[in-house]
Design a protein around this nucleic acid. Structure first.
Lengths: 198, 198
DNA sequence: CGTTGACTATACAAGCCTGTCTAACTACTG
DNA sequence: CAGTAGTTAGACAGGCTTGTATAGTCAACG
């Protein structure tokens, strides 16, 4: 457990080797995709030896799965859900506040897109553990949307959750294409849907 | 296992080598993505020699660009636009008919998703000719949506075109995630938008 | 002191990838 | 017949990929 204070320029001097691997993977995989980022780039940027990486993770696939789990924890739960519920005055407004949270995200200069979507499209083999994990992480988001739909008084919360996820994913792709106002445009749809469904 | 590999799917024996290369690239790139498909797989499936491929296309990048152009011709123009305008009783209903066309597409057993979106997410370097080509092909679709929005009597056709593309891309990704009814769900939004915007 | 566990650095295997090259074959054309 | 353009099969270069192996360093602990 002895992690030395190497003082590697920026931040986090006390992180263990495993933590540095995960932090670096998180940044690189999030920005450039799990396929484009190779092991060599991770070990160079995390400043660890290759053998150390393979002592903590059996394979790159293992590392990608750990990354996707971390992404769900940090982005889905600790950021998207927290921010949505912070922005909404009442639970019935969670659906609309979701798009306010997305709006903040899209306007960040380092907007990186959604690794779940990117991974799903990048790793096409339906039986691959990575493909299935990405699907499942998107399923967790849909389940959350269903709860928001309930709280908004939707007649059919499950149907609305699928509709909201279409909006959300469409806005994410559109923002990646260069439209930072995509969340506002999607929010209009959400408002129309709520007004017509209550 | 019956070996009918001479049939080759779309077997027209009088196709020139260049045509066979493009046909095979179209099928493989559309289904598996431009990054996952290698030159070796294309020459094997097209039954041509590697030197022949490089006599017709300077590089893989050139081949990918030719594929994206062909995709716009066949899918965007000859299929999506034609089918949308065939399905609509009047020009004002092009917007809704668009989602009826998408519905057909999503229910095809060989639904392959949108190569423009996949390529855009896969090739991240913003200056890459491939990235820019994918962006531009999506721009052509948006321009068509703007015309449909005009014909539907939208107050702000450009704004509506961006909103419709969010719906369209969201439905495409959702269908790729395993929701073949995504087009119907997205059509509900389009109907709401039209009713509120006229 | 000596052992042990974690880490580092680096070389290397085996496989893919793009792209080049050679040598031979085929078909058309003057 | 001779020349030319297009094609074929395959070897090969050089780079990048994941993953393993080797050898040595460092710190903690009994």
């Amino acid at each position: 457990m002895a992690s030395r204070d190497v003082g590697d320029g920026v931040a986090q001097p006390q992180l263990s080797a495993q933590e540095r691997i995960l932090e670096t993977s998180y940044d690189l995989f999030s920005r450039d995709g799990v396929r484009a980022v190779g092991i060599d780039r991770i070990i160079a940027e995390a400043k660890i030896a290759k053998a150390t990486l393979y002592r903590h993770f059996a394979s790159k696939e293992d590392l990608v799965l750990a990354f996707l789990d971390l992404r769900e924890q940090r982005w889905t739960r600790e950021w998207l859900e927290a921010e949505t519920e912070r922005l909404a005055p009442t639970p019935s407004e969670h659906v609309l506040a979701l798009f306010d949270a997305l709006d903040e995200w899209f306007h960040r200069p380092d907007y990186e897109g959604c690794p779940f979507i990117k991974t799903l499209l990048e790793i096409r083999e339906p039986d691959s553990p990575i493909h299935r994990a990405a699907e499942q992480h998107l399923g967790v988001i849909r389940a959350k949307l269903e709860r928001y739909a309930e709280q908004a008084g939707a007649r059919d919360p499950e149907e609305m959750s699928y509709q909201l996820q279409i909006l959300m994913m469409g806005a994410i792709v559109s923002a990646g294409r260069g439209d930072p106002e995509a969340a506002c445009r999607a929010r209009v749809f959400a408002r129309l849907l709520i007004d017509s469904s209550s």
